[in-house]
């Protein structure tokens, strides 16, 4: 499938910031059968290329804008050919062993409720994939999709207690519970072309390491394994590792965000 991504983010600062510093993970990590035809990232119209890879293998770059900064725009424009692999990653070159992704983090720390959710899916009948689909379903049943109900620092435990969240929270809860069952699990940030009318969004899901297939994607929000409508961008233990944008700024009150993402099929 040929996907066209147009992802624009506009940051506005209530009071001009003196300096804005950002680290971007907005370029696709190799693997997963994606063929990148074109991939451009522009900051206020200026092209930015990745200058390094982080430890997870994600291409990255930083930029700094000296103030006063009233607003800042980041645009990603990409053309990608994808294929449906039923979530199986297969070809990726990994810098870290699967065992590493058993390590929990602040955002994915286990608590009694998460442990109970995991323990309820210890039945391995039908194999690991079937078990993980059941886990995925149970996560989705316990965490309702509700936009703006959580924020970027919400942990898996908090999202489960809250009973609502967005794709980031679904991914965190699935990662925490999969690890509790002994499966290495990680966070993926990327894009999803969700419906025929072209409405789409930045998205997040999980990848879980199973013994026979290696890394397999699981999208708890949509209760499926990623198919040809998904574009992988960055991976890590949790949102913090794979965040498309992490920033610090000096001054500048009340940062607000406007995000416009269009992903279309074909051209």
């Amino acid at each position: 499938m040929h996907l066209t991504i147009h992802h624009g983010t506009l940051y506005r600062y209530g009071e001009a910031a003196n300096r804005v510093f950002q680290a971007l993970r907005l370029w696709p990590i190799p693997g997963g059968g994606q063929v990148i035809r074109d991939w451009r990232v522009e900051i206020d119209g200026r092209k930015l290329r990745p200058t390094c890879r982080d430890g997870f293998g994600n291409p990255a770059a930083t930029h700094v804008i000296d103030g006063p900064v009233a607003s800042l725009s980041i645009v990603v424009h990409a053309e990608v050919d994808t294929q449906d692999r039923h979530g199986v990653l297969g070809d990726a070159v990994e810098s870290l062993p699967p065992l590493f992704y058993l390590n929990s983090t602040e955002l994915t720390a286990i608590d009694p409720a998460l442990q109970a959710l995991a323990d309820a899916q210890r039945d391995t009948s039908g194999g690991e994939i079937a078990q993980l689909h059941r886990l995925c379903d149970s996560v989705r049943e316990r965490v309702e999709y509700r936009s703006d109900s959580t924020h970027v620092t919400t942990s898996a435990a908090e999202a489960l207690a809250h009973g609502a969240g967005v794709c980031q929270d679904h991914a965190h809860v699935l990662i925490a519970t999969a690890r509790a069952l002994g499966f290495p699990a990680r966070y993926v940030s990327g894009y999803l072309c969700a419906s025929a009318d072209g409405a789409a969004a930045s998205h997040a899901w999980a990848e879980i390491h199973v013994s026979k297939l290696g890394w397999v994607g699981f999208d708890a929000t949509n209760r499926i394994c990623p198919d040809e409508r998904y574009v992988r961008v960055a991976v890590g233990r949790d949102y913090r590792d794979a965040a498309p944008v992490r920033g610090v700024r000096h001054g500048g009150l009340a940062e607000t965000l406007e995000v416009r993402v269009r992903i279309g099929e074909g051209q």
């Binding site: 510093f21 680290a23 390094c52 982080d54 990255a60 770059a61 930083t62 992490r246 610090v248």
Partner: peptide, 23 residues
């Protein structure tokens, strides 16, 4: 580097990790 490690660190330098990895 607060962009990679402790986000509340005031001691480090934002982006230093990326300059390091970029050689």
């Amino acid at each position: 580097d607060p962009l990679v490690f402790n986000p509340n660190s005031m001691l480090g330098v934002p982006g230093l990790y990326f300059a390091y990895r970029a050689g």
